[in-house]
Computed example of a mutant assay.
Amino acid sequence: MESPQAQYEAFAQVALPEYGFSPDARVRLLNLSENGTFLVQEADRRAVLRVHRDGYHSRQAIESELNWLEALRSEAGVRTPETLRAVDGRRVVDLRVGDRYRHGVLFEWLPGVEPPTDDLVTQFEVLGGITARMHLHTRSWRRPADFTRFSWDDETTLGATPHWGRWQDGMAIGAAEQRILSAAADLVLRRLAAFGKGPDRFGLVHADMRLANLLLDGDQVYVIDFDDCGFSWYLYDLATAVSFIEDDPRVPEWTDAWVRGYRRVCDLSSADEQEIGTFIMLRRLLLVAWIGSHSTTDLAQEMGAEFTRVSCDLAEQYLSTTPHP
């Protein structure tokens, strides 16, 4: 059976002529997760090709993502990658390999590196400020009439129609794990219901706003990888910033720094701040679900049962420190 990487590489080759590259252009895999992301290089021309997974986003949803990237760049001063059009002017191209189809998008190659890890307090403060600028923009932006992105709300995270599958189907979840995680999920849902979805709390977010999705080039900061962007609570962006490291003892220090950076740009009420732990628990449960539904990936295999065990520890801590409405 053809590997997922080989499948994505085949689509990448099909995409080359769409953007004026020759078949001899160099194509190197950068990342394979929800999508396949490639560096394409020919002579002095470099670009980043994203081959979308099947069935995750519609063409219009991808176009909507690109509209937001353009608006952030032109209206909010948030540096996002520019979309490079195909030879015929399209931003989203249709790719076919045999009887399989994918969408493809080409982005400019951006300079820079991921933020250094030697001063994460400073980096989280920067991250909070950039996130606030994005949230301010979404509150006033007049979205195109055909704008469409999915939501990360109660139903599509822990409810009946979860985008990443059910946390109950995570790796190594037995009766004990089911009991503690179920209690945590129930408390998260009750607190979210009380928190509400008012316009000051719920809107268009990046939904994967981690330091890994920033690029630093001198004083310039670029924000990348908007593939999960959609409608959710604004605090969900903070929760995503500590994805996979929620158990690190420095998380409170990092989230405090994020809040400081955020408040330099945008208001964040004390009531909102008190709910940070709920959103971190929500995100952790989503990652348990993601690992279960992506159990064949290298990351899921690496995390495995240990990730579920630590998640249960976090759930117990959340239940013991969070008021039950």
Rank of each mutant, 00 (worst) to 15 (best):
M1H: 14
S3R: 10
S3G: 06
A6D: 14
Q7I: 11
E9D: 15
E9K: 14
A10S: 11
A10M: 03
Q13Y: 11
A15R: 11
L16D: 05
P17A: 08
Y19V: 02
Y19K: 00
F21Q: 04
S22I: 04
P23I: 07
P23V: 05
V27D: 07
V27Q: 06
R28P: 08
E34V: 01
A43L: 12
D44H: 13
D44W: 11
R46C: 12
V48F: 10
V51M: 13
R53I: 13
D54C: 14
Y56E: 04
Y56T: 05
H57K: 15
I62N: 00
S64P: 12
S64L: 09
E65W: 06
E70G: 03
L72S: 04
R73T: 13
R73P: 10
S74L: 14
A76I: 04
T80A: 14
P81T: 11
R85P: 04
V93T: 01
L95I: 04
V97S: 11
V97N: 12
R100I: 10
Y101E: 15
G104W: 05
F107D: 02
W109R: 15
P111L: 05
G112Y: 07
G112T: 03
P115W: 04
T117F: 08
V121Y: 03
Q123Y: 00
F124Y: 10
F124V: 02
V126K: 10
V126H: 07
G129W: 08
I130P: 00
A132K: 00
R133P: 01
R133Q: 14
R133F: 01
S140I: 15
W141K: 03
W141Y: 13
W141S: 01
W141P: 04
P144A: 09
A145Y: 13
T148A: 15
R149A: 03
D153S: 12
E155N: 06
T157A: 03
A160E: 13
P162T: 01
H163F: 09
W164G: 02
G165R: 08
G165A: 06
Q168K: 11
D169G: 08
I173V: 10
S182I: 10
V188D: 02
G196S: 09
P199R: 03
P199S: 02
R201K: 14
R201A: 05
F202Q: 05
G203L: 08
A207Y: 03
D208H: 09
D208M: 06
D208P: 10
R210Y: 08
L214R: 03
Q220A: 13
V221G: 00
V223Y: 02
D227H: 06
D227K: 04
D228K: 09
F231P: 06
Y234V: 05
Y234E: 00
L238E: 07
A239V: 00
T240N: 07
A241W: 01
V242L: 06
F244K: 09
D247Q: 14
D247Y: 09
T255F: 08
A257S: 13
A257W: 01
W258Q: 03
R264N: 03
L268A: 00
L268P: 00
S270T: 15
D272E: 15
E273W: 02
G277A: 13
I280K: 02
R283E: 08
R284H: 10
R284M: 10
R284Q: 11
L286Q: 10
V288H: 05
A289C: 07
S293P: 11
L299G: 08
A300L: 08
A305S: 12
T308N: 09
R309Q: 10
C312R: 07
L319N: 01
S320C: 07
S320W: 13
T322Q: 09
P323Y: 10
P323D: 12
H324R: 10
H324V: 13
